[in-house]
């Protein structure tokens, strides 16, 4: 049975992915076309979400901004998974050894640096930009996946089918890839969805304070930063990009909850 949160979450998430993909080929108005005489127009049939202080169409900017948010969040989750999962698998294989200890203490250390603090450090060195936002959020994701992988893999290493694989002479690395990884994939997908939504929030926050995507690349956080001084007389400048963030994050969180319900066998048994 498909849960309601799964349907709502998948619907919202799909809408934003579709908008982002569509913006590659088409937007209602060009996002770089300035139209000063029509600046700060409220929503109308011509400009559904109104125009900004340069007369640019806000709906078009939100569509292109979705691309930035999704790209940053996907790559950041990719870094987290790409580094964190192998680290977690290694720590589980070397459970109790010095390598396990080093990996886990390294994770604790990264946890002490909130994504914003990592972004501040990176910006201080390399300057602001979307790539730095990806690296900052990605680094923050590494310990999340490493801990989760290690915890789940440790449980699996006690199971009979893993013992059988060892008896057959498979190496620890091969068992990790062929048997452990497929069994923790669903857990990683659920966590990936949650980190994806956190990535969108973090990207918006970093862009808002000027540490993320830089103009002229449209991003939701940047749009909100631009709207700040005009929100009293042109509230649509803040409302629409803000709603885009809320709905996409809400969608991904609901999707994560729905996936967890579907993929976690314990919850399925409880429901039955």
């Amino acid at each position: 049975m498909i849960s309601r949160s799964f349907v709502w979450g998948a619907g919202l998430a799909a809408t934003f992915v579709f908008a982002a993909l569509l913006s590659l080929a088409w937007t209602p108005w060009p996002v770089d076309a300035l139209d000063i005489p029509n600046k700060l127009q409220p929503p109308s049939p011509v400009h559904w979400f109104g125009t900004d202080h340069f007369g640019r169409d806000i709906l078009s900017m939100i569509m292109v901004g979705a691309r930035t948010s999704i790209a940053v969040a996907i790559l950041a989750v990719g870094i987290g998974m790409g580094v964190g999962i192998p680290l977690g698998l290694t720590a589980a294989v070397r459970h109790g050894g010095w390598l396990d200890e080093i990996i886990m203490r390294g994770n604790d250390l990264i946890f002490a640096f909130p994504a914003l603090v990592i972004a501040i450090l990176i910006t201080a060195v390399f300057g602001a930009g979307a790539v730095n936002a990806i690296i900052a959020i990605g680094i923050f994701n590494i310990p999340v996946f490493a801990r989760l992988t290690r915890g789940a893999a440790l449980g699996l290493w006690q199971r009979d089918f893993i013992a059988m694989a060892r008896v057959c002479g498979k190496s620890a690395a091969r068992i990790s890839v062929e048997h452990i990884l497929p069994n923790i994939a669903s857990l990683m997908i659920v966590q990936g969805t949650i980190q994806f939504s956190l990535g969108i929030l973090a990207e918006a926050g970093l862009s808002y304070v000027g540490l993320g995507a830089q103009p002229p690349t449209p991003s939701w956080g940047r749009m909100l930063a631009d709207a700040q001084t005009m929100v009293a007389f042109a509230p649509h400048l803040a409302i629409f990009p803000g709603m885009a963030i809320v709905l996409s994050v809400l969608g991904l969180n609901l999707l994560g909850d729905g996936l967890r319900d579907r993929l976690d066998p314990r919850l399925r048994i409880m429901r039955a």
């Binding site: 709207a227 009293a232 803040a238 803000g242 963030i245 809320v246 809400l250």
Partner: peptide
């Protein structure tokens, strides 16, 4: 709470300034 988790605090802050401080 699901909606609360999804709201960026700085966006909420902007709307709060507009409503409670300016209006």
């Amino acid at each position: 709470t699901q909606i609360g988790v999804a709201i960026p605090n700085f966006w909420f802050a902007m709307l709060a300034v507009s409503f409670f401080a300016i209006n």
